[in-house]
Design a protein around this nucleic acid. Structure first.
Length: 458
DNA sequence: AAAAAAC
């Protein structure tokens, strides 16, 4: 079977109504992961799918699962659901829900999605009537379980998308609780992951029974169609450098990744002031803002999307030409996920990483994880001494910030200062705040083309 | 150390 990939969906054992819908959607031939996964899942096997996003994962689990549910033809009772799909972000859950709804149109299957940021009562009411396929983010699902709005005891299918992200602390506890509420015996479990860290083996052993393993591309390797490069630059010169890159391709779409919510927000506002067509998305924005930003970017209304790692995984946005790693990710695997936002559906793309001296250590970790070097396309790598000093300085400043936060609460009365005012410094040598260093206040000018030189060399 | 996911 593996030597002879199937040319169309006809002989994979899918329900006729799904085949009709696939024709209508213009999906003619299965992708490799679909061709290999669908027959096994239709046959009831557990599955471990190792695949990058954009390889057709959603249809690979969705079509055979819907086929089995249609064939069983059993209505769920109140609050019961028959299949559960878990995703790590709300946007990913939305995307999966839209795809499954399209595949299942006209079929006697009810697909529903529950995520945070929307009324829980409306969702609970809908669950009261029973649901066939539920797509959920872990936080909201736990909330619904606590309210006894959902009954997972008859749920025969569990799908974990982006399972490697479910290993994160905070997710893993939720996942364990959810998995305990499902049947342990008569359950088919499907797991998908782009990377295979060691802990994933434990998760597989815990939840999969004699799984079929389908691997469509070496995990952890960046897609070959992505033209990658790294540009060494001082932290302070990053914004101006980004503006130069963006100005060279103003009619093309770009995703810019930052490390923190605050940083991404600030950068989005700065680019907006500089006249770029930009939207930003991160976890501190309301769900409405997140969805509007994504929609505007998807439609091409805005050309630049500034994001945190909330958008690193799985999101399928057509025609993204550029990915900028404005800050390098601190989880090396996320580099591969981030650059995977470009070069989708057979197209090519370009990924530029900005690397400040303090990030050289992150860069090397990424290269080690990918087992390949990223070509240098600009700037000059700082010496080992400069990089080490910058890394140490950054760690120290983060420790200080951490201390300031934890010490910011109620403090002993001793040495109290008027609120909002800093205690006087021992050496009052700091010059008065001048217009030149007054920060990113208001009428900041677009940076000149000529960058300030040599800041990275220390 | 940060982001995500719940109010």
């Amino acid at each position: 079977m593996k030597d002879k990939p199937l040319k169309d969906f006809e002989n994979l054992g899918l329900a006729p109504i799904l085949l009709e819908n696939l024709r209508r959607l213009g999906m003619t031939s299965p992708t490799p992961i679909q061709a290999h996964a669908i027959p096994s899942v239709v046959a009831g096997r557990d599955l471990l799918g190792l695949a990058q996003t954009g390889t057709g994962k959603t249809a690979a689990f969705g079509l055979p699962m819907l086929t089995r549910i249609i064939a069983q033809n059993r209505r769920p009772e109140a609050r019961q659901i028959r299949a559960l799909v878990l995703a790590p972000t709300r946007e990913l859950a939305n995307q999966i829900s839209e795809s499954l709804n399209a595949y299942a149109e006209g079929a006697p299957v009810r697909v529903f999605r529950v995520v945070g940021g929307a009324s829980i009562n409306v969702q609970a009411q809908r669950l009261q009537r029973g649901v066939d396929v539920l797509i959920a983010t872990p936080g909201r699902l736990i909330d619904l379980m606590d309210r006894r709005a959902i009954d997972l005891s008859q749920t025969g299918y569990l799908v974990l998308d982006e399972a490697d992200q479910m290993l994160d602390i905070g997710f893993i506890h939720a996942l364990r609780r959810i998995a305990r509420a499902l049947p342990q015996e008569d359950r088919q479990t499907l797991m998908f992951s782009a990377t295979m860290p060691k802990l994933m083996n434990d998760l597989c052993a815990e939840y999969l029974t004699d799984p079929v393993r389908v691997e469509v591309a070496p995990p952890g390797r960046a897609a070959e169609r992505i033209d990658q490069g790294v540009h060494f630059v001082s932290q302070g010169d990053k914004a101006a450098l980004l503006a130069e890159y963006l100005s060279a391709h103003t009619d093309e779409k770009a995703v810019v990744f930052g490390r923190t919510k605050h940083g991404a927000d600030k950068l989005g506002k700065l680019l907006d002031r500089w006249g770029f067509s930009v939207a930003s998305i991160h976890g501190n924005k309301s769900q409405g803002q997140r969805e509007r930003a994504l929609a505007a970017f998807r439609d091409g209304e805005v050309k630049v999307l500034v994001a945190t790692d909330v958008a690193a995984r799985g999101l399928d946005i057509p025609l993204v030409e550029h990915v900028y790693n404005y800050d390098l990710p601190n989880v090396p695997e996320n580099y591969v996920h981030r650059i995977g936002r470009t070069a989708r559906a057979g197209r090519s793309g370009r990924a530029v990483a900005f690397c400040a001296p303090a990030e050289v250590v992150d860069l090397r970790a990424i290269e080690a994880a990918m087992k390949s070097r990223i070509p240098v396309i600009g700037g000059e790598a700082p010496s080992a001494e400069v990089a080490a000093a910058a890394t140490a300085a950054l760690r120290q400043s983060r420790r200080n910030a951490q201390q300031a936060r934890s010490g910011g609460g109620p403090r002993p009365a001793k040495a109290a200062t008027p609120s909002g005012q800093k205690p006087a410094k021992p050496k009052a040598a700091k010059p008065a705040r001048s217009a030149a260093n007054a920060g990113n206040g208001g009428g900041e000018a677009r940076p000149s083309r000529k960058r300030r030189g040599g800041a990275a060399r220390g």
